[in-house]
Amino acid sequence: MGEPVITAEEVFFSYDGVPVIENASFSVAEREFLAIIGPNGSGKSTLVKLMLGLLRPDSGKIRIFGKAPQKISHCFGYVPQDVAINRSFPISVIDVVLMGRLRHRGSSRIRDRDRKAAAASLEQMGMAGYENRKIDDLSGGQRERVFIARALTTDPDILILDEPTASVDTGGQAELYSLLQELNRTKTIIIVSHDLMVMSSSVTAVACVNRQVYYHDQGEITQDMLDMGYQCPVELIAHGQPHRILKTHEDES
């Protein structure tokens, strides 16, 4: 693990006066596989959008490679939550993936090499041959793969996936995780999930979010596990899931 790619310093954010993120400070190391967990409405997606620069903090600082997120947003490959939005929109698989090449090296045109890059990402995600299918005709898991292919087409340093397993069955989830593990060799990966069952051994750090952000990296897991019990919000403790996850984690390693 090298220098931090993402640093947050005392970040606060609120929607209409309601605090969503409070005093978040953490740093994400290079090629980390970070899982952001927390109950629904805990601010996970907000935290991701702050990192992406889609939202600006009320106060505090977020830096990506030492720069403001808006200046460096092309470094991100983003897979949004709920890829089922806009279902009736007439768009083919290849057109979705080609979005990832928009403004690639400043150009608004799509060239042959962009099409090749898009086809390669689809192939990597096991979706070759689906180029001209309408996105609406695919299953949830297939759509998820197309959206990951779109994110990969941007050639990102950091891959951020917001609830990627929501529409994928268990078998598909295992496949997805082995694929992410593969990608993790060259990229920092951040994955948001409230479904803690899906965490795999590839996760190297966990950020527990409930307005505040508790960052645990794997090296100190045993100690952190205890800490987490006190720091994590009641909802999570009630589920008992974070502990189970981390235990599974420990067993495997």
């Binding site: 992406l52 889609l54 947003s73 092309h74 949004p80 929109f89 057109d95 979005m99 928009l102 941007t154």
Partner: peptide, 21 residues
């Protein structure tokens, strides 16, 4: 001229924004 941008803005505005559109 703006066909690709129009697709991106209409389909997924946040992604378009990230791409610098």
């Amino acid at each position: 001229y703006f066909y690709r941008d129009m697709i991106a803005i209409s389909y997924d505005v946040e992604f378009a924004r990230l791409r610098g559109v």
